[in-house]
Computed example of a mutant assay.
Amino acid sequence: MCFYIASAQTDAFKFKRNIIGVNSAWHKLQLPNQLYKNANSGFDDLRIFGVDGKDTLEVPYLLKQRADKVISKEVDFKPVNESANSNGFFYTFQLNSASTINQINLAFKEGNFNWQITLEGSNTNTEWFTILKDYRILSIKNNDTDYQFTKLSFPDSKYLYYRLMIRSAEKPGLLEALINKTDTIKGTYQDVKYKTFRLNNDAVNKETVIDVTLENPVPLSNLSLNAQSDFDFYRSIKIEYATDSFKTDKGMQYNYASLYQGTLSSLEKPEYNFENTIASRLKITIQNNDNKPLRLGKLELKGNIYEIIARFDKPKLTYAIFYGNDKIKAPSYEIEKFESKIPENLTSLTIGEEQKNSTYTTKIEKPLFENKVWLWALMAVIIALLGWFSFKMLKN
């Protein structure tokens, strides 16, 4: 279905970029980083137009971001043995069939514990093979902290029996064990370089604040932080991005919105995923409480790439992508309902440099009193009213 617009609607957009290489009906194109600065944050204003004489053809498209896709399948099992000796407490699980697994999630009655565990696998329930050794699980619950790390992650294993040994002086209150096979379909990311990295250890508020600025607004969805200490640690961490700025006597100030809130721990990889967000400035806050600040080193940022899949019904036309319109609503195209019919192997197109749209126009409404006729008419009415009130006063 083609979209023809009688009077070329391209004049409503401030910017354009030529699209090069259209030679078939279906293509894909990656949005360049420089586009995000002038496009709307939700991409409602993105349009692709082709010129056909005096008419303008609007191209239907889908906007995609290739994030990681996690698929987790729960594996059925039954507990078959529970025992203890001087080494600790043992829990044995039998799978309904020998299936590949790589994750076990545990839940305990206790709110506070710090245990070392060993996980073994066997197909005979007699000869055991070590999967995890001296693996630490932890739970801390008090007025300031509610943190748990009870997920066992390990390489793909395929056994019929699994035995969990917990080193504890008292019997653990194991409430639940969930056995899973988790796979991650990797998304498409690009590394993001930052312009400045400013770290401040605030002794008054007992926190470390890192301000990060980027060259331009770009998509961000992943942050990795190199945090080190001579001892194990767990700290609250908050990641925010600047939504706008304003000038004050103390310089530029920023309003922030949350991207991620959680825990920075020596037990887990300090890598955080959040919804893909266009940002140019970040603030990372680590709550130290009464602890010594961590040694913070390399910071890595990544973002999901935005990609357009478009259908060009007339490949021979000249096409361009337009943006820069704060008042327009997001488009609604039928191809969204028939995505399964889009070919898989699509040729990539090249998007040219940003140009100011030469046809862009804005309607400027002149003030009413700029018109001299209206001004003289108003003065005549005022003089007539003053004369009438004066005559009444003299008559009385």
Results as ranks from 00 to 15, higher is better:
189 Y>R: 13
160 L>W: 05
208 T>M: 07
167 R>H: 10
206 K>Y: 07
204 V>R: 04
182 T>M: 03
187 G>M: 08
163 R>M: 07
198 R>K: 15
194 Y>F: 14
168 S>T: 05
149 F>S: 14
165 M>Y: 00
158 K>Y: 04
214 L>I: 01
160 L>P: 04
197 F>T: 00
199 L>T: 12
225 L>R: 02
203 A>K: 13
198 R>S: 14
171 K>R: 15
184 T>N: 11
184 T>G: 04
222 N>K: 15
151 K>C: 04
184 T>Q: 13
153 S>N: 15
159 Y>R: 02
194 Y>Q: 09
174 L>S: 10
216 N>D: 15
190 Q>W: 00
175 L>E: 14
150 T>L: 00
225 L>N: 01
192 V>R: 11
182 T>E: 04
197 F>D: 09
222 N>D: 10
226 N>S: 15
152 L>P: 02
225 L>T: 03
201 N>A: 10
217 P>D: 08
171 K>N: 12
150 T>E: 13
166 I>V: 14
160 L>G: 06
181 K>A: 05
196 T>R: 02
215 E>M: 05
196 T>D: 04
205 N>C: 03
152 L>S: 04
208 T>S: 15
151 K>Y: 00
199 L>C: 02
150 T>C: 13
148 Q>T: 13
218 V>W: 02
194 Y>V: 00
212 V>R: 05
226 N>C: 07
179 I>P: 02
168 S>Q: 13
170 E>S: 13
205 N>L: 14
221 S>Y: 10
211 D>A: 01
154 F>V: 09
166 I>R: 08
167 R>V: 09
169 A>G: 11
190 Q>H: 10
168 S>D: 11
158 K>D: 03
162 Y>K: 10
183 D>N: 13
156 D>H: 08
183 D>T: 13
199 L>K: 14
149 F>D: 07
158 K>N: 12
215 E>F: 09
194 Y>C: 04
156 D>M: 11
173 G>C: 03
211 D>I: 05
225 L>I: 15
157 S>W: 06
210 I>R: 07
172 P>F: 13
223 L>W: 01
181 K>Q: 05
207 E>I: 00
164 L>P: 12
164 L>F: 07
171 K>W: 06
209 V>L: 01
194 Y>S: 07
